[in-house]
Amino acid sequence: MPRTEFHAQLDGLRGRVLELGQLAVAVIDRVIGAVQEEDRATASAIVASDEPIDRLHVAIQHDAISLLARQQPTAGDLRAITAGMAIASELERIADYATGTARLILHESREPALPPTHDLYRMARAARRMLQRSLDAYATRDTTLARHIWNEDPAVDTLQQTLYRDLLTSMIENPSTLTRATHLLWTVHRLERVADRATNICEQVIFMVDGEWPHFDTLRDETLIARAVALDSED
């Protein structure tokens, strides 16, 4: 395959990964809305949308591997292909978290309502922002942005711990909403996983561009972390 055609295919791969990325962002948005409104119709639609997302993921993996097999890639090309595969994997699992959350909305419960707290929506917004911006970093090969997003994760972890504590307290004080509280625990867990996977995407971007796997010590930046926490509490 001539190099120019190969590069066109590399661009195509990146484009499909970004397409998958937008599907993941969209489904996260929709599921948060569905949690807020207890919207079973949207929850059903989200569950149904999981299969097309899986199929796109499989297609991307297939294309990437075919690309690898058809031409001797340079080191940079190889990293671009493997990063695309790894990121697609993260995105498919992020979409799975949304589907899992949607399934819980569909569970019948005779318990009184237990509205999610403001903190949950803050956490959802933070995770969603991390996801979108990690994809932006991938699209533009922006390692500075990737590093910034990576450092937004500790703030999300803190929110998770707060929410866990609050939910466990609520479970002890209000056994009448025990099952609903358990569902919210899962939702909090999944949001933390979304944020964590967004940091994985950031690591892949840095590896792809710099050629070296970024280490925890070089990534972690207390100033950036503090800034993310401050911004987050302004919500």
Binding site: Q61, I65, S66, L68, A69, Q72, P73
Partner: peptide, 18 residues
């Protein structure tokens, strides 16, 4: 991944490595 990139396996072999 190195096998794929250097050996360029096809069809059945490629599926195994993948």
């Amino acid at each position: 991944l190195l096998i794929i990139a250097t050996q360029q396996p096809l069809a059945g072999d490629l599926r195994i490595v993948a």
